[in-house]
Computed example of a mutant assay.
Amino acid sequence: MVLYREKDFAEETNRITGGEGVDVVYDSVGKDTFDRSLDCLKTRGYMVLFGGSSGQVPPFDLQVLNQKGGLYVTRPALAQYTRTREELLWRAESLFSWIGQGNLDVRIGGTYALEDAARAHRDLEGRKTTGKLILIP
């Protein structure tokens, strides 16, 4: 595991892959890691930017994607993948099936009493958490 606040994760990724890079980067941090996440990708690599805990990525020149190897970037949102009730049920069934079969490991990063929900949000916003957080009523 490479902790992006402790090491240059792009340098580590390129060291580990022998300079080839990786096929996909899932970036939940945003502004602070966006450029270096692109640097981790191999030619025609794919970056999924699904969060912005450090802030939103500022506008950038799309020509950079060409210069770095014909890269792809997407910014999905859950609502785009659950537009109908049928799609929501289909995706939920797949997800819970994978979890039940042990094919998907869901890391629980912490639990909070429901009355501590504001603290849980502050911890998320302050990037003090990893994994999923659970609120207990």
Rank of each mutant, 00 (worst) to 15 (best):
L41T: 02
T43D: 11
R15W: 14
L62Y: 13
R36N: 03
L38H: 04
S28Y: 14
D39S: 01
D35Y: 07
V22S: 03
M47P: 01
D32P: 00
D23G: 09
T33S: 00
L41N: 01
G21W: 03
V57N: 13
V22C: 10
Y46I: 07
V57P: 12
T43F: 12
V48C: 12
C40N: 02
D23T: 08
C40I: 09
G19I: 02
F50W: 12
Q63R: 12
G21E: 05
G45N: 11
E20I: 15
R36S: 07
K31Y: 01
V29H: 07
V57A: 14
Q63M: 13
G51L: 07
D32M: 00
Y26Q: 12
N14S: 14
K42M: 04
Q56T: 15
Y26I: 14
V57C: 13
Y26C: 08
V57Q: 12
R15G: 12
R44Y: 14
T33P: 00
V57K: 11
R36L: 03
F60M: 08
N14R: 15
L38T: 04
V24E: 10
D27G: 08
L38Q: 02
M47Y: 02
L38A: 04
V22R: 10
V29W: 08
L62R: 11
G52W: 11
L62C: 12
L41Y: 01
C40Y: 06
R36V: 03
V22W: 05
G21Q: 07
R36P: 05
V25E: 03
S54F: 01
T13D: 09
V64K: 15
F60Q: 10
V29F: 04
G21I: 05
G30I: 03
R15V: 13
D39N: 06
S28Q: 14
Y26P: 06
L41M: 00
Q56A: 15
D61E: 11
V25T: 01
D39L: 02
F34D: 00
S37I: 05
T33Y: 00
Y26F: 14
T33M: 00
